[in-house]
Computed example of a mutant assay.
Amino acid sequence: MKTVSLLGVGVIGVMLGCICLVSQRKSLFGVLLSMEVFTLGVYAIIFSVFWILGELGSLCLVFLTFGVCEAALGLSVLVSLVRGVGSDYVSGLTSGHF
């Protein structure tokens, strides 16, 4: 019963992450946060499916590692953008200052 609720939380997280990702148009920080919600939702789905199957393999750990690497790369791009342009607005990327 707990795995079904974890699967539901994962599906809601994926849907919420997609909606936020589509609706963000100004701030790169908001895009990165919505991508993190999406990644955690997918991780919850993968974890609950492997829990139901009875095999908690290393795929969950590998996926979580890739999620952390994605977050670190996104944060480095955000810091580089803020240092170069002065804000995290996506409109600053199109002006050619980056």
Rank of each mutant, 00 (worst) to 15 (best):
V22N: 05
V4Q: 08
S27N: 14
G86W: 04
W51F: 12
V9T: 03
F66S: 10
V4C: 06
E70Y: 07
L6A: 14
T94Q: 09
V14M: 13
F63E: 10
I46K: 06
E55V: 09
C69R: 03
T3D: 13
S76T: 11
R83P: 00
V31D: 04
L75I: 07
V82F: 08
G67A: 13
S48D: 04
E55Q: 13
G17E: 07
G86P: 02
S95A: 07
C18L: 15
V11I: 15
S23E: 10
S27Q: 13
L7W: 02
V37W: 01
V68Y: 05
V62R: 11
S27F: 14
G30Y: 01
R25E: 11
L28N: 02
L64H: 09
I45N: 02
I52K: 09
G74V: 06
S5Y: 12
V9C: 08
F50C: 12
C69Y: 09
Q24S: 14
F66N: 06
S58E: 11
V85R: 00
T3I: 11
V14W: 04
M1P: 10
M35K: 02
L61Q: 13
V77E: 04
D88N: 05
F66P: 04
L56Q: 08
G10P: 02
A71F: 14
G84T: 07
L6W: 08
I12G: 10
V82M: 07
F63C: 07
L6D: 09
T65A: 15
E70F: 10
M15E: 11
S87F: 07
I12V: 14
M1S: 14
K2R: 04
F38C: 08
Q24C: 09
W51N: 12
K26G: 10
V85E: 02
S95F: 04
S76W: 10
L64Y: 08
S76Q: 11
F29C: 02
M1C: 08
A72D: 01
K2H: 08
G67Y: 03
T94S: 15
E70L: 15
V77I: 14
G86H: 05
V11P: 03
S23G: 08
L75A: 11
L53N: 10
I52P: 00
T65F: 14
L40C: 05
L7P: 02
R83M: 12
G67D: 02
V85N: 05
F98Y: 14
V14K: 02
S48R: 01
G67I: 01
F50W: 05
V77F: 12
V9N: 03
F63K: 05
L21M: 13
Y89A: 11
V90L: 15
F98H: 12
V77M: 14
F63Y: 14
I45S: 02
V11R: 01
A44H: 03
Y89E: 08
G13R: 04
C20T: 06
C60Y: 00
V62Y: 12
L61V: 11
V14L: 12
F63W: 09
Y89N: 07
G30V: 04
L33Q: 00
